[in-house]
Computed example of a mutant assay.
Amino acid sequence: MTSPLLSVRNLKVDIPSGSGTLHPVRGIDFDLHRGEVLCVVGESGSGKSLTSLSLMGLLGRTLERSADRMEFDGINLLGASGRQMRKLRGARMAMIFQEPMTSLNPVYTIGDQLIEALLLHRRMPRAQARARAVELLEKVGITAAASRLGQYPHQLSGGLRQRVMIAMALMCEPQMIIADEPTTALDVTIQAQILRLLYDLVREMDMAMILITHDLGVVARVADKVAVMYAGELVETGTVAEVFDQPLHPYTRGLLDCIPQPGKTGRGEPLGTIPGIVPSLVGQVDGCVFRTRCTQAGPACLGPIPRRSRDGHLFRCVHTDGYAPAETKAI
């Protein structure tokens, strides 16, 4: 098998505070290959966006990032200087941020914001860069693309702004793109169009994509692999079929129970819920972080939680017996 484009081992993010150190991201391991779509799912506050920002080197100065390994195409992202990261961002790794309404600068035209990456990374003549911008706006489904270059963000709808953000991320044909809940502010019809567009572009351009979402319906449509995140940890990782058909972690099962199933969930029938709240991650975090909300919790959940494997389907739980440890594998 080819070496991964992105390889992450034991990624942690810590936030010092007056009451102690907050640990919102803990022990993240995964690999991402070219042409692959990895969906990271979990409820709000589980650490999905912080994980993506740490990969891009966009964390605030007060946040502390560490990892045993974090390599992108053989480049050590942990040891990269600010100048090296600026050369990577936008050129070889790009990000579509969560909120299209505020991600564009309101005082610059769409054209100026689109061509900036090409002028910076490729030293391309302005006229050629504008032609590339028109080409990509058309590719993402924006009509009258040339006339849009002179418009400002407030003159575009939310759906059009999101398409501009996608075009901006693709300007330099990056090898990897991170999409952080790119359809949150859009209506259902536009959501489906944007997701299909991203999926088709990944396949067409042979990019790798990390798609962050809390919508399991989205995951079922576009993912190759799924990583379920809870309270800063990846608690289960596998293919879509493995995670959806045979979920091995109680949290994953809880998420799936919250979704109405055609032919099984009757009209007016209550959906499943996950009781309780996410525990505090300030100070020392021991045992299974899901134990306060889990119906299977017992004394063993207070100790170390091993990572286990079922034919490559990885999970963290002490209550699923008969599976081999997976301490040396990425989850």
Rank of each mutant, 00 (worst) to 15 (best):
L77H: 10
A227H: 13
G57H: 08
E327C: 07
L50P: 02
G303C: 04
A169G: 11
D200M: 04
V222H: 12
P262S: 08
E135A: 15
T143L: 14
A131C: 00
K264W: 05
V8T: 08
P125I: 06
V278R: 06
P174T: 12
L195E: 01
L137Q: 05
P247L: 08
S309G: 10
L281W: 05
A145R: 12
E116M: 02
R86Q: 15
V13W: 09
Y323C: 15
Q284W: 00
E36S: 07
Q155P: 09
M1E: 14
R267W: 02
L118D: 02
L197K: 03
R132H: 02
T213K: 09
L256A: 09
L136W: 10
P100K: 08
E99S: 14
G322E: 09
V134E: 13
C301A: 01
S3W: 00
L216T: 11
A169I: 01
T239Q: 11
D245V: 07
L314N: 00
F72D: 04
V188L: 12
Y230C: 11
A167Y: 02
L201V: 06
T292L: 10
E135I: 03
T102Y: 06
I96M: 00
D31A: 03
Y108V: 08
Q191F: 03
L170D: 10
I96R: 04
Y108H: 15
D286Y: 07
R9M: 06
K329G: 06
P153A: 10
M1P: 14
A208L: 03
E173F: 09
Y230I: 12
K139L: 15
G159L: 05
H154M: 13
L281P: 06
A223K: 12
S280Y: 05
R293W: 07
V25K: 06
K225V: 13
V107P: 05
M229Q: 14
T239N: 12
L302N: 11
R163N: 09
R221Y: 10
A241D: 15
L255E: 01
H23T: 01
V222I: 15
L314H: 14
G82I: 13
D73F: 10
C301K: 03
R291I: 00
M56W: 02
I194K: 09
